[in-house]
């Protein structure tokens, strides 16, 4: 068909590009209040809890160097466990908010192949979450560093294991956020998406740990290691060289194994979300 143009406008017909979709999703993410609130809460909680822990800590004995580093890292990342819950809420809202308001129909008419829209949304949300979480934990580590020496802890900024764990904390939050976004895309309802995400991160681990405590079964405790929140937690814990090997058959994931476990969770839920998005009526 011959498409004529209005006299005032000659469109730059560059067409639909993945870069354009990424840009669109970035605009969408930063122009909602819920995004700003959730990220602000994550930064404030990380800083606040880190500060509280650092100022309340005191040791009478002289700790070995790796323990001092572990305490510094713990204080810097103590808020991340709460951050997981906040980012899970935001992750679900990022997609269910579109279903709740009808925005999804605008999104999918602009990107009718659908999968690029979901991929761009997850990518933008994951990267932005990583950056903000990384700033939050590094800022906390820097802020509490001057407080700790008077309490028997000498932070060593040259310790690569600390930096790796700080990166791990940010990656963990990003992955938990994308996991929750995938759950939201499957459920397509804000209340339901948030409930299931928090159930997976908070309720399920509690039930299993109660079960493990009551039955005293080692394998139940081992199963717990593979839940998203435990795997995320392992990604920012300090790994010393003198890790004792357990003799009772229980084990703890290495940080790199924890990354694989959490990536696995995200992959499964994201794939399911993508298949359903492609197949269902919007």
């Amino acid at each position: 068909m011959t498409a004529t143009t209005t006299p005032t406008f000659v469109p730059e017909r560059r067409g639909l590009t993945f870069g354009g979709i990424l840009n669109s999703e970035f605009i969408k993410l930063r122009t909602l209040r819920s995004t700003l609130w959730c990220y602000a809460i994550i930064v404030v909680i990380t800083l606040g809890l880190g500060f509280v822990l650092a100022t309340s800590y005191s040791s009478n004995t002289t700790l070995p160097g790796y323990s001092q580093q572990a305490i510094w890292l713990l204080a810097s990342t103590v808020g991340v466990a709460f951050g997981q819950l906040v980012i899970a809420v935001l992750g679900a809202l990022v997609i269910t908010g579109e279903y709740g308001t009808g925005m999804i129909r605008s999104t999918l008419t602009a990107v009718p192949k659908r999968i690029p829209a979901l991929t761009a949304k997850a990518l933008v949300f994951g990267v932005v979450t990583f950056l903000i979480a990384f700033v939050a934990v590094v800022l906390t580590a820097v802020v509490i560093a001057p407080i700790l020496p008077s309490r028997g802890v000498q932070p060593d900024f040259g310790d690569s294991k600390v930096w790796l764990a700080l990166v791990g904390a940010a990656v963990a939050l990003a992955l938990v956020g994308v996991l929750s976004l995938s759950i939201g895309a499957i459920i397509r309802n804000s209340a339901g998406g948030i409930a299931i995400s928090l159930g997976l991160l908070l309720v399920l681990p509690t039930i299993i740990s109660i079960f493990a405590a009551v039955t005293r079964l080692t394998w139940v405790g081992n199963v717990q290691q593979f839940l998203p929140n435990s795997a995320a937690g392992r990604m920012y814990s300090y790994v010393s060289n003198s890790t004792a090997v357990a003799t009772d058959g229980s084990f703890v994931l290495e940080p790199w194994q924890a990354v694989l476990v959490l990536v696995g969770w995200v992959a499964v839920f994201f794939a399911l979300a993508a298949v359903l998005l492609k197949r269902r009526d919007a």
Partner: peptide
């Protein structure tokens, strides 16, 4: 702006 961005509309 978000819709326009997908197609690089100025």
């Amino acid at each position: 702006l978000a819709l326009a961005a997908t197609h690089g509309i100025p």
